[in-house]
């Protein structure tokens, strides 16, 4: 019985509970200004729990800015001012006393270009758990690294060379390593900023498979320029244009029966 409870506890640790509304993140009247230029205008968007949300739109429409708001990476952009609220599990992350360290542990991020640290593969994955002191035990850390690498499907490829530098991997492997690095801190949300734009089609397919795998346990927000990819991987889609959300909702609905002419044009490839 005790064993059973422990097992159950472990399980819940792995999967962050979804709230009753099944909404992980929520933005309310979110506006972003660079100096005096407004980059985002009153964005209201709900991000469903343990689902994939795709952000689409032409370059410079504000989707990256929006994504950086979700884990406050905008703090590092000079002259950037954010108004409005971003709620994670109901708590506004833009309150003054929010600790960005804790926040970013819960909301990880993967970048456009694979950016493994110039350290070993092992160290790349162990970096997050180590700095957050999630695990202080070498064996547990080994186990976590293995589990994480298995989860991103990299374990079989690198098991015999964990000490090799992360930069020695191929582009697709590097990106999966970066995803492993991001999920090793046990986040609730993983942000992916065009994770496949620097990869070849085969590596892209692998990442898409991985996303489908991860969505069971993580809430994923993905920016993509590929309509097909958005259609393939996401449950929900938000279409950004000139700092506004033109349309957001179920992916099938957006792609098959968009309400707005602009959405139709963009998806149809008339501009972009």
């Amino acid at each position: 019985m005790v064993k059973n409870m422990n097992a159950e506890k472990k399980k819940t640790e792995d999967i962050a509970e979804c709230g009753p509304e099944n909404i992980r993140m929520k933005t309310q009247n979110l506006s972003v200004f660079y100096n005096n230029d407004q980059a985002l205008h009153d964005i209201n968007l709900d991000i469903a729990c343990n689902k994939v949300t795709a952000l689409i739109g032409p370059s410079g429409c504000g989707k990256s800015t929006f994504m950086r708001c979700l884990n406050r990476m905008n703090d590092y952009v000079e002259n950037c001012r954010v108004t409005g609220k971003v709620r994670l599990d109901g708590f506004n992350i833009y309150k003054d006393n929010v600790d960005t360290i804790l926040l970013r542990q819960k909301v990880g991020m993967v970048f456009q270009k694979p950016n493994p640290f110039p350290k070993s593969i092992y160290e790349n994955v162990a970096y997050g758990p180590k700095i957050h002191h999630l695990i202080d035990n070498k064996d547990e850390l080994d186990a976590l690294v293995e589990k994480t690498l298995r989860r991103v499907g990299l374990w079989d490829e690198v098991a015999d060379r964990l000490a090799a530098p992360g930069t020695s991997l191929s582009g697709g492997q590097q990106q999966r390593l970066c995803i492993a690095r991001a999920i090793a801190t046990k986040p609730e949300v993983v942000l992916m900023d065009e994770p496949c734009s620097a990869l070849d089609p085969i590596a892209t397919a692998r990442i898409e498979e991985l996303i489908a795998e991860l969505e069971k346990k993580f809430t994923i927000v993905i920016i993509t320029h590929s309509m097909q990819q958005a259609e393939r991987v996401s449950h929900h889609t938000a279409f950004f244009h000139m700092g506004h959300i033109i349309e957001a909702g179920d992916t099938q609905k957006i792609f098959n029966d968009p309400e707005h002419q602009k959405t139709k044009d963009y998806i149809g490839g008339k501009f972009g």
Partner: peptide
Amino acid sequence: RVKRKKSPFIYKSYSKKPKHRWL
């Protein structure tokens, strides 16, 4: 309960939780 729960992203120095000690 969700409403009553303390925000997990706010770090208070008086917290006794080990995670917060590290923080």
